[in-house]
Design a protein around this nucleic acid. Structure first.
Lengths: 335, 335
DNA sequence: GGCTGCCATGTAAACGATTTCATCGTCGCC
DNA sequence: GGCGACGATGAAATCGTTTACATGGCAGCC
């Protein structure tokens, strides 16, 4: 009937040792004598003892929490990175505190509050719109940036965004397209900038025209992809291929085009970016740039764990390779 | 150069009061005199004091953590529930610990460990395959089940799964379909059972045949939807309409059908379940049963907060209404 | 045999808050 | 004017660990 959970004191009493020995048995078993160790372990089993993480964290001056900042938790792209993060953090006894940076206008203030409140031992930033200054205060814990860098010196796991865009352009150019358009992410976002730059540079490299009217603004959502499709329809001189800065937008765009009777890829070829799971299940399948999302999360978590362990704010950076996945949404340029 | 964070002691010293008064000023401002309160608050501002959550939690015998059990974090359906949960939990100073119940074979054991380790003040269960016994040990904190019930007496936020299935069937029957098939979720999952039962009952109510060959087994993933499409192709006597137990499966199925040249809805009508965002962006749009995912999360979190506040394991339950969203993937039965 | 040194363990002081209980005024009332 | 009550504050215990330091015993060595 002891609904109370056993404490280290109880274990110590049962095993006939001091709490120090119990603690040592659990954290560094090799420093206690074999006999004592066994006595303690059986006392642990008998009492059903579990270490109280809160107390442990307090004493060890850590929080056991990693704060993950992301713009939109409902985006499947992010959730898969989360899965990667979790697979490393959970075994390391860290829990993820997920903060949606998009909710509400006071987001920036709430954020600073969060960052400096000592609620987290580390930070994983998935939001490309956060300012480097916000992230480099003295009170801000070690941080790893994911998928972006913005000239900051913080360690990061980045994806070859520019090269990804170039892969898309080259693929389309190889298929004979000469009029290639682009739908960007939201302005100010690093992903947006790099992919757009990579796109423009690749066009130039292939000697293809960069046409301002063909660069449409989106915001990574399906809705904005659909809007881009409508905008495309209203263009006088329409590109025969579109490279969209995210799969979500590409899906929204493709759906909107198809429901207007425009054929993909016969009338227009579509390339996305991300390779989210659904891309292969569409008809036609979506040609896209693959980013290994789980790996990204895993590497980010590993780097962060290293930083926390070595108590530094500097860490390694890593660049993750992207690949073109050709599918049915791209085809030869129409006449 | 005091990179150290201020403690309540520092504030007390600066304000010339005791730590007790500082603590009171912050947690129940009305019991301290106005003058003292102001002195304390300005000392707080001056020192940049933030309460140390870990210490506070330890003293107050809480963890400040809610454990969320879900089968697959990458599923967009769940992430939106998470968003709803977060919107309630974060303001209440709770953080979410997300545990993927699917990873690894020792999942069940790890789970029990988690549940009883006192790591969480509450539990939100999104996984329909967990056994009620696992969730009702004396050491398990207050729990709310989401989207399921399995005869358990635990409080829950459930969705009208059976009625949703009936809505789908009636919609198809109204369109003249008499041969209606179903793709289920994974066996043993409560959602699977209830939706299948609702499906069968609705067929019977409309006087339509229940044909075992037309009930295909899936597991809620796109891949299994695609597999169902292939299975459908191999049927001798093919249903003219399919109700799939999740949108993901419906998408996988529709994509696979279309890429085989089978037209939706001319050759076969498709109904999903969930109304995930992408459903409206497909071409044709996916007819589906809408569950208000964010609301579900919000209500579950609210109920849990109530339970924690009143220190009980019993809470209210709530049933969330579903709606049919007709889109282009359903049409009149072919001749 | 006595000294050095190491190994295993215990003692007790943190960690930073909350909260009970005691104390000290001050006010009101008879 | 004295007594009771109440309102505001402080002192100190407590939450459950971890860990620096002290202690005691035993082996090894001259």
């Amino acid at each position: 009937m002891d609904s109370k959970i056993a404490t280290i004191q109880d274990v110590a009493r049962v095993a006939g040792v001091s709490t120090a020995t119990v603690s040592r048995t659990i954290s560094k078993p090799d420093v206690v004598a074999k006999a004592t160790r066994e006595a303690v372990l059986s006392a642990v089993a008998e009492t059903g003892y579990r270490v109280n993480t809160t107390a442990s964290n307090l004493r060890r001056q850590r929080t056991g929490t990693v704060l993950v900042l992301l713009p939109n938790i409902a985006n499947p792209f992010f959730s898969q990175i989360l899965a990667g993060l979790a697979s490393v953090l959970t075994p390391a006894e860290y829990s993820m505190l997920i903060a949606d940076t998009q909710t509400g206008p006071d987001a920036d203030q709430r954020l600073t509050h969060y960052l400096t409140s000592g609620q987290a031992d580390g930070l994983v930033v998935l939001d490309g719109t956060l300012s480097p200054e916000t992230l480099s205060g003295p009170l801000v814990p070690p941080a790893v940036l994911v998928c972006e860098w913005m000239g900051s010196t913080l360690p990061s796991v980045r994806v070859e965004n520019a090269r990804g865009a170039a892969l898309a352009v080259n693929h389309l150019a190889d298929l004979g397209h000469r009029k290639i358009g682009h739908v960007t992410g939201p302005p100010g976002n690093v992903l947006t900038e790099t992919r757009r730059d990579g796109f423009c540079r690749a066009l130039a490299d292939r000697g293809l025209p960069v046409h301002d009217d063909w660069i449409l603004e989106g915001d990574f959502t399906m809705d904005s992809g659909a809007a881009a499709a409508r905008a495309w329809c209203h263009l006088e001189d329409r590109p025969t291929a579109l490279f969209l800065s995210s799969d979500e937008m590409a899906i929204g765009c493709m759906g909107a085009l198809q429901s207007r009777g425009i054929r993909v890829p016969e009338d227009v070829s579509i390339v996305g970016f991300d390779n989210i799971e659904i891309a292969q299940h569409l008809s036609p399948g979506l040609t896209t740039i693959r980013q290994p999302r789980t790996d990204i999360g895993v590497r980010a978590a590993e780097i962060l764990m290293d930083m926390i362990a070595s108590k530094t704010k500097d860490g390694q950076s890593e660049i993750i390779t992207v690949h073109l996945i050709p599918r049915g949404s791209t085809g030869p340029a129409p006449e």
